[in-house]
Amino acid sequence: MSMSTILTKVISRLIFLPTFVTAVAILVKGYFGAGDGFSAGVIAGTGVVIQFLAFGPRELFARYPSLRRAPLLAWSGLLLGLATAFAPVLWGDPIMTHYPRPGEEVPHLGLLAFHTAVLFDAAVFLLVFGMIVSVLGAIGNRYGSEGVDS
């Protein structure tokens, strides 16, 4: 089935960058409103899935070869999550302790809070986004040659 009209191609390319901006925004503002690392990861992933639909796997990965490294992103997300969770044990706090502790001041840069929970959220983001793109890449690798490449 041909899903790749000029219109879809143009629109999908136009919204590619904005999806990432939205994703990062949701990740950063997670501590102030709805949304968190998971939602942000899915939004960013959606951006890539739309490109996949519009251009087909071959063209997508030819255009953005760095997407092939997505598994690396996922693993580093897992490592970051584990590190944020377990690092406090090294100086004698229970696992999953976040800093600054309750009652202390959290430094801010705009909406971005310098809080380790945000770091943990970023780990979730990396893992979810990496997972979506990796699976997409694997599907494309396996079936791409018989697929839509119009």
Binding site: G30, Y31, F32, G33, A34, G35, D36, G37, F38, G77, L78, G81, L82, A85, I95, M96, H98, P100, P102, V106, A113, H115, A117, V118, F120, D121, A123, V124, L127, V128
Partner: peptide
């Protein structure tokens, strides 16, 4: 330090669950 309770639950209160899930 969270304005959004759901995020606080996911990243802090039940952070170990989230860790298991990821």
């Amino acid at each position: 330090h969270a304005a959004d309770v759901v995020t606080a639950i996911l990243a802090d209160f039940r952070g170990l669950d989230t860790l298991g899930e990821i």
